[in-house]
Simulated scan of single mutants.
Amino acid sequence: MSPPGLAILGAGIFAKEAHLPALASLGNSAVELKAVYSRSEKSAKELAQEAQEVLKLSVLPSVYHDGDQNADLDSLLARSDITAVIVVLPIATQPAIIRKALAADKHVLSEKPVAPDVASGLELIAEYNSKYKPKGLVWRVAENYEVEPGYQAAGKVVRAGKIGKVTCYNARVVNHVSKDSKWYKTPWRTVPDYQGGFLLDGGVHTIAALRVMLPSPLVSLSGYASLNQEHLPPHDTINVAVKSEDGSHGLVELTWGAPTPSRSSLAGNSISITGSDGWISITQGKAKDVNGDEYNAFRIVVRTVKKDEKGGVIGETEEVIEERVQGVELELKSFLAAIAASDDGFGDPFDALKDVAFIQAGLESNGNPVDLVKLVQQ
């Protein structure tokens, strides 16, 4: 059986730097990239050329763009040899493109966030569930933190009870985004037409990580949002207190508005989860393989209370787990498996909507409690 035909819609940084290498790691026997689309011919051609090189394709993927009505997005979606698309387009643009692709009977993997806001996300999910899911079409959201082996490993440790009952947690993400940043220079990020700016674009990752590690769902929060760097509107910082259904609670600090690079590099970015019998910390950095070559990895340190035969505390034990960063590859693998009727549950649009709801609640709270469950009620 020949592999499914695939098209990438969007030719930005993440399509080139993340999705192409992930496709290469899966191999051309798993999926065949047949076409690429971008709003401009130049960017579409650049992606096609890079794809041919990275994927070692004998034939250049077909190029589609908005400048030619005979080779536009509708023309791409009309092709019967393309069964699935990866949507890597600006946040505000994605819902309409997802609808268009589903209407053309294509399976869809769309980059996070699932939608610019909760209301539009709910509408899109309801439409998919009523019109396209019954037809067997697969729509998944590409949230790579959800499938990262590091976060999955940490979640297993917590659920196995190695740190006891979870009591509290902390997530800190401090980023410095200068005007010279390649991410800032992306036009749709420079003047965002959606809530939260970088907070929505990047903040959902952290919430997804908490979602897969904590044993109980997040149910309410209270916090404040602000803009601290004028070039990062409408907001660049959120600080919130959050409560889980089981009564545990935590603090989440998200900012892309650090004034200097050192504020970010020395912030101690991490997630920690504390339980009645220990705690766990998760950080991201570099590790080395057996050959001494560096790779990106998550480092999970599990510290467990050590007790004597009478239950008295006599110290603690430490376990270190390192997992290679490979979320984009795994989310693609999961998507292809779902198309083949082997669904592992990852990438569920409603789960991704909960991440958007958290960011939206943080932006709108202004110190008042927000019920996260009610916010996403369908």
Rank of each mutant, 00 (worst) to 15 (best):
G223W: 11
L73Q: 04
V325D: 08
Y184F: 12
T190M: 10
Y37W: 12
R303D: 10
D180W: 14
R140W: 11
K156P: 09
Q69L: 15
K56L: 14
N366H: 14
F14W: 11
T304S: 14
A338H: 14
L23S: 09
Q69R: 15
Y132G: 08
N70E: 15
L57S: 01
L89R: 00
K185G: 08
A258K: 02
S276V: 04
S262P: 05
S120V: 11
A352F: 05
G136R: 06
Q377T: 01
G161R: 07
I97F: 14
A18F: 15
K34R: 15
E230A: 14
S216N: 05
R140Y: 12
I321G: 05
G311D: 09
D68R: 10
A241K: 15
R299G: 09
L55M: 10
S120Y: 08
I98K: 02
D344W: 09
K100W: 03
D355Q: 11
F346N: 03
L102S: 01
I271N: 03
A24R: 13
D343I: 01
V141L: 02
K310F: 13
A171L: 10
R159M: 13
L102R: 02
I359C: 04
E364I: 06
D351K: 11
S222N: 08
K185A: 09
A101L: 07
Q195N: 07
G362N: 01
H65M: 06
Y128H: 08
A103S: 13
Q152Y: 06
L26M: 10
V173H: 11
W256Y: 10
P21F: 05
L210T: 04
R159K: 12
V290R: 13
G257M: 01
Y132H: 12
I125E: 05
G5C: 07
I273Q: 07
V147F: 08
A357L: 01
V325N: 07
W279C: 13
R99I: 14
I339T: 08
S38I: 01
G150T: 00
P187E: 06
C168D: 15
P90I: 00
A30C: 15
G121P: 07
V370N: 02
D66K: 13
H235A: 12
E322Q: 15
A7Q: 07
T190H: 09
A297P: 00
P3H: 08
W183F: 15
F350L: 11
L375F: 01
Y151F: 14
Q152T: 05
K56N: 14
K45N: 14
K288M: 06
V305F: 00
I98V: 12
L363S: 03
S178I: 05
N296H: 00
A48R: 02
A171T: 00
E123I: 02
E230G: 12
A92N: 06
S181M: 13
L232E: 04
